Simulated scan of single mutants.
Amino acid sequence: MGRVARSFDYVERADGSVVISHHGRPAGTLRGDRAAQFLAEVREDPQLVMARWTGNYRRGNERAARQHPRNRG
């Protein structure tokens, strides 16, 4: 089968902080309680959770943009 595209990745550092990267570039660093909360939540659906924590996720306006006269084709 095909390979699953993974645009987000994270690294847990020894000091307890978490660095989230998007396409190999740092997208955010979490420390303290936020890092612990992220690590507890990331086990569910890692790509979606990392997208949500970095703010890089779909905002729900894709359908409206597709129907705009400029984008109809």
Rank of each mutant, 00 (worst) to 15 (best):
His23Ser: 11
Arg3Thr: 07
Asp33Ala: 15
Asn61Val: 13
Arg58Thr: 07
Glu44Ile: 06
Gly60Val: 13
Trp53Leu: 06
Asp33Lys: 10
Gly60His: 11
Arg3Ser: 07
Glu41Gly: 00
Arg31Ser: 10
Pro69Leu: 12
Arg13Val: 01
Ala64Gln: 14
Ser17Phe: 05
Phe8Gln: 06
His23Ala: 13
Arg66Gln: 15
Ala64Asn: 07
Arg6Gly: 02
Gly24Trp: 05
Arg25Phe: 01
Tyr57Ser: 10
Phe38Trp: 03
Ala64Ser: 14
Arg72Val: 15
Asp45Asn: 14
Pro46Phe: 01
Asn71Trp: 10
Asn56Ser: 02
Arg70Gln: 02
Ile20Leu: 15
Ile20Ala: 03
Glu44Arg: 14
Ala35Arg: 04
Gly28Pro: 00
Glu62Ile: 10
Gln47Ser: 04
Gly55Met: 05
His22Ser: 00
Gly60Asp: 11
Val42Trp: 00
Val19His: 00
Leu48Met: 10
Asp9Ala: 15
Arg6Lys: 14
His22Met: 06
Gly73Tyr: 12
His23Tyr: 09
Gln37Leu: 14
Gln37Met: 08
Tyr10Thr: 03
Pro69Glu: 04
Val49Phe: 00
Ala40Val: 04
Asp33Ser: 13
Tyr57Gly: 05
Thr54Lys: 03
Leu39Asn: 03
Arg43Tyr: 01
Arg43Val: 15
Gln67Val: 05
Val19Ile: 15
Thr54Glu: 01
Asp33Gly: 12
Ala51Cys: 04
Asp45Met: 11
Arg31Asp: 05
Ala40Phe: 01
Gly60Cys: 04
Val18Glu: 09
Thr54His: 06
Gly32Glu: 05
Gly16Glu: 04
Leu39Pro: 03
Arg63Trp: 06
Met1Gln: 08
Tyr10Gly: 03
Gln37Phe: 01
Gln47Tyr: 05
Val11Ile: 13
Leu30Ala: 08
Ala27Phe: 05
Val42Arg: 01
Thr29Ile: 14
Val18His: 10
Met50Gln: 07
Glu12Thr: 14
Gly24Arg: 09
Arg63Leu: 09
Ser7Met: 12
His68Asn: 08
Ser17His: 04
Ala65Val: 15
Arg6Leu: 14
Asn56Arg: 14
Thr54Met: 07
Asn56Phe: 08
Glu62Leu: 12
Val42Gln: 04
Glu44Thr: 15
Leu48Tyr: 00
Phe38Arg: 02
His23Gly: 02
Gly28Gln: 10
Val49Gly: 00
Gln37Ser: 11
His68Glu: 15
Arg58Phe: 08
Ala5Pro: 03
Pro46His: 05
Arg58Cys: 04
Asp15Phe: 06
Ser21Met: 04
